[in-house]
Amino acid sequence: TTVKLGDIKVTFDNPEKAKKYAQKLAKIYQLTVHVHGDTIHVK
């Protein structure tokens, strides 16, 4: 599962960890989390 934020891409083996990371980023940057299959976009 890949978390994308602009040019930053972080890949996790564990989808749950990816989701938590995405939510953490979203909170920090006051953005929202969008899940598209294996990719989680923070924008």
Rank of each mutant, 00 (worst) to 15 (best):
Q23F: 09
H36W: 10
V33F: 06
V35D: 07
K19T: 07
Y21K: 02
V33C: 10
H36E: 15
K9C: 15
D38A: 11
D7I: 14
I40A: 01
I40R: 00
T11G: 04
K43N: 08
K4R: 12
K19G: 04
I8E: 02
L5A: 03
K4E: 08
K9W: 14
Y21E: 02
E16G: 07
K19W: 15
H34I: 14
H36Q: 13
L25A: 00
K17G: 06
L25Q: 01
K43M: 14
K19Y: 15
V10G: 01
T32S: 10
L31I: 05
F12R: 00
N14G: 04
T1N: 04
V3P: 03
Y21M: 05
G37L: 06
I40W: 04
V35I: 13
N14M: 04
K19S: 06
T2L: 07
K24E: 09
A22Q: 01
V35F: 11
V33I: 13
P15S: 08
Q23H: 10
G37N: 06
K4L: 13
H34F: 13
L31K: 03
H41Q: 08
T11Y: 14
N14T: 11
L5H: 07
V3H: 02
D13A: 10
A26C: 14
D38T: 11
D7V: 14
Y21I: 06
I28H: 08
L25C: 12
L31F: 06
V42K: 01
H36R: 10
L5V: 12
A22Y: 04
D13T: 11
G37V: 05
F12Q: 00
H41K: 05
A18R: 01
P15A: 11
D13H: 09
D7W: 15
T39E: 09
T11W: 14
G37T: 03
V35K: 05
Q23T: 08
H36N: 12
T2P: 03
V33M: 08
V3D: 02
D13Y: 08
N14S: 12
D7T: 14
I28A: 07
D7E: 11
Q30V: 05
K9N: 09
H41R: 05
I8N: 05
D13V: 09
V3Q: 02
V33Q: 01
K9L: 13
A18K: 00
K43D: 08
K24R: 11
A22C: 08
K19R: 12
D7R: 15
T39F: 09
D7C: 15
V3W: 00
V42T: 02
T39V: 13
G37Y: 06
G6N: 06
